[in-house]
Simulated scan of single mutants.
Amino acid sequence: MTRARSLKQTALPHSPEVLLLVDVINPLDFPTAQDILPTALQAAHAIAKLKNRCTRRGMSCIYANDNYGTWHSEFRDILAACRDLKGDRGEISRLLTPEPDDLVILKPQHSAFHSTPLQHLLTEMKAEKLTIVGLAADMCVMLTATDARMLGYEVWVPEDCTAAESPERKSNALQQLHGVFKCSIRRANRSEK
């Protein structure tokens, strides 16, 4: 016997500040994944600490995740597959598994704003400030942050909560976000290097 899912409407929380987690549930299955994996795990631990602080403060969290071309699946399928991975890949997904109150959207392109309901969600939530974390600093995080700035949001991209395939790529992306788009890039966890 199959239990019918509820279609009961749920209210969106009012959240002037939102933590946006970009592509953190990720199989890291591409030719140069080994280059990003060590720093991705470090970033995941920093993101987990930051997320804990944000939720204690009452901030809403939105996961904006790539669908990895799996057009017949949904986020739960992607999460389950990533959590089952061995080693650091699975650890990252287990560490950053969404909580029941977290919101999740799937994105087909690099920016979390492109062809998704993200802007609508943020408007309904009365969001003004976004903290954007995730993978990779020089691709999806950067493009999401630039779109957010162009839409008028105040943006913080904590440097210790992102990763890229090389330190140079990460540094260049963060400096571009800071210098050109006026995003804050200060660390989330100041006691760590």
Rank of each mutant, 00 (worst) to 15 (best):
I62M: 05
E165A: 07
W71I: 05
K129F: 03
L7V: 14
A64C: 06
P27E: 08
K193R: 07
N26P: 04
V18N: 09
P27A: 07
R94Y: 04
R56F: 02
T55G: 06
L174T: 01
A80F: 14
S191Y: 06
G152W: 14
P158S: 13
R56M: 06
A112L: 06
Y68P: 04
F181L: 08
D23S: 06
T55P: 03
V155S: 14
L174Y: 03
N26H: 14
Y68N: 06
V155E: 13
H178L: 08
L28F: 15
I62K: 03
S6I: 13
Q176C: 03
P98M: 01
R169E: 13
A136R: 07
K182F: 11
I92L: 01
M142Y: 14
T39K: 12
M59W: 15
H114D: 00
F30K: 05
K126I: 03
I78S: 03
V104E: 09
Q9S: 04
A137S: 15
F75C: 09
N189H: 02
C183G: 03
G58V: 08
R149V: 15
D147S: 12
E128V: 03
D66R: 04
D77E: 12
C54F: 06
G179F: 01
K8F: 08
P100T: 12
S115L: 15
P27S: 09
L95S: 00
N65R: 05
A46C: 14
T131A: 11
G134R: 11
S73C: 08
S111N: 11
C54I: 05
R5W: 15
D101Q: 01
D66T: 06
E192P: 00
D66C: 04
M125Y: 06
R3F: 11
H178Q: 15
N52Q: 13
H114P: 00
A64R: 01
R53C: 04
F30L: 07
L19D: 13
E192W: 12
M150V: 01
K49S: 11
A173D: 02
R5V: 15
R83I: 05
S6H: 12
N26A: 09
T39Y: 07
L135H: 10
C140V: 07
P98A: 00
